[in-house]
């Protein structure tokens, strides 16, 4: 059991998460983009594109402009998710001492870490709840929704709640033990699962999420960027620059056929002296 839950599951989950996501994205990128599907107005240079992508990725700019209520739910959720992920990495690695790097005492750092972590977790649960309610209350969105959409929200909510539960007396996990376990896992050393039922539940849910991620709509995180990149492609210039690579397989065939026809045609000696 210990081996199953503490070693086999996390390694399988990570392998599936990484290979599944990479395969999915690579599968998309391998497919050709035969035509320019630029959506105007499109940013003209790389800086503009990066800024536009960042605005969408970190601020959900499009929803902000159109629907402030939806934006608040969506943005707060993604923001808190980002903070929680960052907090896990930094907080576990530094054992909540990370803020001593900016000059505060270890006690204050631990307090700040707990406050920020708890707050982010709380916002995450509340925003997930708001997203769930929004899905149910809005008749259009309810009709669009499928079981998966509710499952995704509930899974994330269970994950966040089990994480917050570890703040409560009686459910607390031993942070150094968690850190030791995680570092053993990462270094491929045999590791003992910390002896905390709440940690084990949280850890189990996290693994389910990793296993499930590449097959779910949660992959919109990557798909959005792939889509946006196509919509921001620089429009073609005409006449087409010499030596530009053919855009599509059929365009390449046309080019090849034209070259071939020219080679076979009568030799033009007009320019020779």
């Amino acid at each position: 059991m210990e081996f199953l839950l503490g070693a086999l599951l996390p390694y399988t989950a990570c392998a599936v998460f990484i290979s599944g996501t990479v395969m999915k994205i690579a599968g998309w990128l391998k497919k050709p983009v035969p035509f320019h599907i630029t959506l105007f107005p499109a940013p003209r240079n790389t800086m503009g594109k990066v800024a536009a992508l960042a605005g969408e990725f970190f601020f959900c700019g499009r929803i902000f402009r159109e629907d402030k209520a939806l934006w608040l739910r969506v943005w707060l959720f993604h923001l808190s998710l980002g903070l929680v992920i960052a907090g896990h990495v930094v907080g576990i690695y530094c054992l909540r001492d990370q803020f001593t790097l900016v000059g505060v005492s270890p006690g204050t750092s631990r307090f700040m870490s707990k406050l920020l972590g708890g707050l982010s977790g709380g916002v995450m649960v509340l925003s997930l709840y708001a997203l769930l309610i929004g899905r149910i209350v809005n008749p259009e969105v309810r009709k669009l929704s499928v079981a998966e959409d509710f499952f995704n929200l509930l899974l994330l909510m269970a994950l966040a709640v089990s994480g917050i539960m570890m703040y409560l007396p009686g459910f607390q996990a031993d942070l150094p033990a968690v850190r030791a376990y995680m570092s053993d896992l990462i270094m491929f050393r045999s590791a003992a699962l910390p002896d905390s039922p709440m940690f084990v539940s949280h850890f189990l849910l996290a693994n389910i999420l990793l296993l499930y991620f590449p097959f779910s709509r949660l992959l919109h995180a990557a798909g959005s960027i792939v889509n946006r990149a196509m919509l921001m492609e620089a429009p073609p210039a005409s006449p087409t620059a010499e030596g530009a690579a053919p855009r599509s397989r059929f365009a390449a065939r046309r080019v090849h056929a034209a070259l071939h026809a020219a080679a076979q045609g009568p030799v033009d000696r007009g320019g020779q002296t």
Partner: peptide, 15 residues
Amino acid sequence: ARSFSVMLETCTRCG
């Protein structure tokens, strides 16, 4: 076309 499969697989049904 890339657009076809990515755009079919990314909708979160947000409305």
